[in-house]
Every structure is written in structure tokens, then in C-alpha cells.
């Protein structure tokens, strides 16, 4: 190992501090008794208590979790199909088109996706009568549309690096392609499916802009509630919520890390 240069090391330290100090301060001040950010007036859990009694916020969180779970499950199926197409079907007609359709949602600004999908839903409702009203279903469809592109990226790289000799062996022994896919391929790419699912879940849980466009009256997701309370200024309840989110993510990452090490 070469000796590391100190300018590089200091940039690395600065970079990680830049990424983590805001989050750590958010967590610290969620335990602050005072409403003010700059005054530390003692340890308190009262903001967590208020959070648990905030009916509007809890309802919104439950709606968001339901949307996120359905979105992630559908996106994993569609994203895996798309990854199969790109890795397993060689140079089919329309391949470039599919690649384009799978890359564009990754970078497309949210305001464009949101507005364009809303206009589609409105037009469909006028012409074919579906969707009947906007809310849970339209938000879920919108989220699947961009989530599946992220899932495809994750599953595709795993499929491309996979050792095909196991599949060939099964094939040689007379197993049908579908059996091979279900019994050999899927278990081998399972970690990618899991991280794709989790990624799609968090992307959905996080989305404010697209959901705001395609939602209807009565369907308020968690980011919409956070956004409207953040616009009013700093709110310790949001700090408490952020702390819970970070804790949840940390636990999930540790579990995922441990289970992967065991493999």
C-alpha cells in the first residue's frame, strides 16, 4: 500500500463531514426540548410524542408505505423483465428504443414526469373513463414508471456478471427454460432483486413532486405533509421523523450487510 497523500485524505474527510454533519445535527436536535435550533434547553422526547399523535401525518405515512410497497413489487417484476430482455435477448429489434426508455426516467426532471402523467390520466379519464379519480392508483402507476428503470439497472448488472455455467448444466440435464429460470437464475440474482425492491420502495417514499401532480383530493402522501410543514419553517417534529427514518435505514442496511456476508 502506497502512502496516502494528505490533500486527498483531507478532501475525503471534508466530503464525508459535508454529507453527514447535517443529518447528525438533525438527529441531535430532535431530542432538544426547545423549538429553536440554536438553543439547547435539555433532553426531551416530547417531539416524538407529538409525532405519534399527529393523525394527519400518520395517515399520510400509512398511505405512502402502501403505495411504496405495491410500487416496489410491480417495479421489481417489470424491471427484471426489462433486464432479461437487455441481457438475454441479444440484438433484437427495438433494443435501442428500450435502452432509451429505461435511461430517460433516471434523469428526467420530476416536474416533467409529473405534469405529463397527469395530462395522460386526465385525457384517459375523459376518453375511456379510466382512471376514475386520482389518488392511490395514479400515484402508484407514476412511481412504478420511474422505479422500474432503477430496478432494471440493478438487476441488469447482476445478470450480466452471473456465471451461466450453472444454467447450462441444468439445461443439459433436460430442464425446461422456465424451470431453469425459476430454480437457478432467480435464486442467483435474488440479492439484486432485494436491493432493487428496497431502492424502488425508498424512491417512492421520497417522491414529492410527481405525487403532487398526479394525486387527487384526499390522497396526501408523507412527503406532501412534510413539505407543507417545512414551508412554515423549522419544525422539531420533522426532526424526530427524520431520526426515525435514518434509524430504520441504518437497521435495514446492517441486516442486508450481515445477510450478504453470510452468503
Amino acid at each position: 500500500m502506497k502512502r496516502r497523500s494528505w490533500p486527498l485524505l483531507s478532501i475525503l474527510v471534508f466530503g464525508y463531514a459535508f454529507l453527514y454533519v447535517p443529518i447528525l445535527l438533525l438527529i441531535l436536535y430532535s431530542f432538544n426540548e426547545s423549538r429553536l435550533v440554536t438553543v439547547w434547553s435539555g433532553f426531551s422526547l416530547k417531539w416524538y410524542g407529538e409525532l405519534l399523535h399527529n393523525r394527519q401525518l400518520l395517515d399520510a405515512a400509512w398511505l405512502s408505505v402502501r403505495i411504496a410497497a405495491l410500487n416496489a413489487s410491480v417495479a421489481v417484476v417489470l424491471g427484471t423483465l426489462a433486464a432479461n430482455a437487455l441481457v438475454r435477448h441479444g440484438r433484437f429489434r427495438g433494443r435501442t428504443g428500450l435502452e432509451l426508455l429505461l435511461t430517460a426516467p433516471l434523469v428526467m426532471p420530476d416536474v416533467i414526469i409529473g405534469l405529463s402523467l397527469l395530462l395522460l390520466f386526465v385525457t384517459l379519464q375523459q376518453t375511456v373513463g379510466w382512471p376514475d379519480g386520482r389518488g392511490f392508483s395514479t400515484i402508484t402507476i407514476a412511481h412504478i414508471t420511474f422505479s422500474l428503470a432503477y430496478v432494471a439497472v440493478v438487476v441488469r448488472s447482476r445478470l450480466a456478471r452471473m456465471d451461466v455455467s450453472l444454467e447450462e448444466a441444468a439445461m443439459d440435464l433436460g430442464a425446461r427454460p422456465l424451470t431453469v429460470y425459476l430454480r437457478i437464475t432467480l435464486p442467483l440474482i435474488a440479492p439484486a432483486l432485494l436491493s432493487g425492491w428496497l431502492l424502488a420502495f425508498t424512491l417512492s417514499l421520497d417522491d414529492l413532486v410527481i405525487a403532487s401532480f398526479v394525486s387527487g383530493p384526499g390522497a396526501t402522501t408523507l412527503p406532501m405533509v412534510i413539505y407543507s410543514s417545512v414551508r412554515m419553517g423549522v419544525s422539531p417534529q420533522i426532526n424526530a421523523l427524520a431520526t426515525l427514518v435514518v434509524a430504520l435505514v441504518a437497521v435495514a442496511v446492517v441486516i442486508a450487510g450481515l445477510s450478504m456476508r453470510r452468503r
Binding site: L25, P223, I226, V234, A242, V253
Partner: peptide, 17 residues
């Protein structure tokens, strides 16, 4: 890791800072 926590909340953190 930070990418997995809410984008909205991370932007919000800077208001207090």
C-alpha cells in the same frame, strides 16, 4: 447511505443550518 434517507428531509436539514 444518505441517498436512502429522504431527499426532502436532507434539503430541510440545511434550512436549520
Amino acid at each position: 447511505l444518505p441517498f436512502w434517507t429522504s431527499f426532502l428531509i436532507r434539503v430541510y436539514a440545511w434550512i436549520g443550518l
